[in-house]
Design a protein around this nucleic acid. Structure first.
Lengths: 66, 66
DNA sequence: CTTAAATGTAAAGTTTGTTTTACATTTGAA
DNA sequence: TTCAAATGTAAAACAAACTTTACATTTAAG
């Protein structure tokens, strides 16, 4: 599981804390997601995708591990 | 969080056990998902969406609760 | 250079996803 | 109607998501 949260965030010049607040999780959760430390729930993934106005698949990608 | 797994499965006349095997989870997990007993990980959601050859958003929908 | 904001990280704890086993009920085909 | 396959459900156990607190490091603006 890979994701482009870091990139999307950089494009919009948004802070981890801002995104966290926008989607209703802690800043550490966003930080851990960017570091690919774990896989989010679909709900969180969809909230993040919605926030960036992109489909889930544009931000999250299945890897070999999965 | 709502989903149309039951419908997609009915269309393809696929069994819960078949889908479970195809995406690598237990049959009970599929059953519980159809009953909306819990929210899957994005990985599982994407595997299911891939299996049905549809985008995640076509199968999973955020609800008020989320 | 200094300082504040942003980021990385870590440990402990809570909650929730997922598995396993097991059994009861429904459904559909013979 | 009968029997097997499919589904519903439930409890215990385990794994993984997510929170909170707390601190160290990096980055950027003044």
């Amino acid at each position: 599981m890979k994701n482009t949260i870091h990139v999307e965030r950089a494009i919009r010049r948004i802070t981890q804390a801002d995104l966290a607040a926008a989607v209703g999780v802690s800043r550490q959760t966003i930080n851990a997601l960017e570091a690919a430390k774990y896989v989010p729930s679909v709900v969180l993934a969809m909230k993040i995708a919605n926030y960036f106005e992109k489909p889930v698949e544009a931000i999250f990608e299945l890897g070999e591990e999965d």
